[in-house]
Amino acid sequence: MNLLAIDTSTDACSVALLSGGELSGHCRVEPRGHTRLIMPMVRQLLAEQGLAMADLDALAFAAGPGSFTGLRIATGVIQGLAWGLELPVVPVSSLQAVALELAQNHDAGEGDGMAVAFDARMDEVYWGCFQLVDGLPQLLAPERVCPPEQVSLPEGCSRWLAGGSGWRYADCIPDSVTGSVNPPNPALAPDARFVARLAAVAWQQGKAVPAAQAQPVYLRDEVTWKKLPGR
């Protein structure tokens, strides 16, 4: 299987290719540069692996939660490719991708938990708790957006790893949570390589969707816009 994955849900822009069981990819951190960077990065990666767009079997993208603009960019790119190439798409949770990265970075074992938080702006975080089962992070409770003071950890995990930009609000997170996790890594962001790994499993499980059903996951239904002074 040749699976191409992209992620533009944060300031980082990344692409990955899973081909013949081998994983390769590129990542660049350039806020507001996603539209300009993403397709040249895709073409470069395919060229490096000696593949053409027509050789792809499936597409994947980090569907969110994350930056509204970034998610719209990723959705538009992946839908355009899927329609043009007539390929299925696997949407992947951005929080789950970081959970898998946490598990790998810390050599997590079965039963370990991953508490992932993204900065959702407006003094809120996107929050997801996962447990490692058969080597993959499984969601323990619905992903949500809330003030950092309201996050909590489900029971049953042997230890908790923590990461994601939302952990910069650690001072606002309840002591019952911060006291239960390993030192968090606020610099950890979604990476298309981990999106590709999760997507390959989902694809094999028949969870791919047509292009029209490849939609972003915002979690927040409404955005409060502050009117600028004098306007």
Results as ranks from 00 to 15, higher is better:
A211W: 05
V125Y: 06
K207W: 02
A199W: 09
A202D: 10
V177G: 09
A189Q: 14
P91S: 07
L100M: 03
S180Y: 01
S158T: 15
L85E: 03
L132D: 05
A187I: 01
R121W: 09
N105P: 00
W167G: 03
P154G: 14
Q205V: 05
L102F: 05
A103W: 11
A170V: 07
Q96T: 01
L198A: 11
L140S: 04
W203K: 04
V133W: 11
V201R: 07
D112F: 09
P154E: 14
L87W: 01
G113C: 10
D123W: 12
V92C: 04
P190A: 11
A202Y: 08
D191G: 02
A115D: 04
L95E: 05
D119R: 10
A120W: 08
V177C: 01
A196M: 12
A103L: 12
Q138M: 15
W167V: 02
N185Q: 13
C129Y: 00
S180F: 06
H106L: 00
A187N: 09
R197G: 00
A189F: 11
V89K: 00
D123L: 09
E110C: 10
V151A: 07
A117G: 03
G163P: 01
P137R: 02
P186D: 13
Q104A: 09
M114Q: 04
G84S: 15
A192F: 02
P183Q: 00
V92G: 03
P137C: 09
T178V: 13
Q104H: 14
A189N: 13
G163L: 03
W127H: 06
V98K: 02
Y126G: 07
P190M: 05
G109H: 07
L95N: 05
D107R: 14
A108M: 02
G135D: 03
D119A: 11
N182I: 04
A211T: 05
P147T: 10
M114H: 01
V181Y: 12
G206F: 13
R144C: 14
Q150D: 15
V151K: 00
E86P: 09
Y126A: 08
A108K: 08
E110I: 07
H106R: 09
A212W: 09
L188W: 14
G109P: 06
A162R: 04
V195P: 03
C172K: 15
Q96V: 02
S94Q: 01
A187M: 07
E124Q: 12
R197H: 06
S165W: 08
L95G: 00
Q204L: 14
L136G: 10
G156K: 06
D107C: 14
A120N: 12
G164A: 10
A108R: 12
P147I: 11
V195K: 08
V201G: 00
P186S: 00
G166M: 04
E155T: 08
T178W: 12
L132Y: 00
W167Y: 04
L140F: 08
G166N: 11
D175N: 03
V145A: 13
F130Q: 10
V195S: 06
L153K: 01
V151M: 11
H106F: 11
V116Y: 12
A196P: 01
D119H: 04
D134T: 12
Y126E: 07
M122V: 14
L188Y: 06
R197D: 00
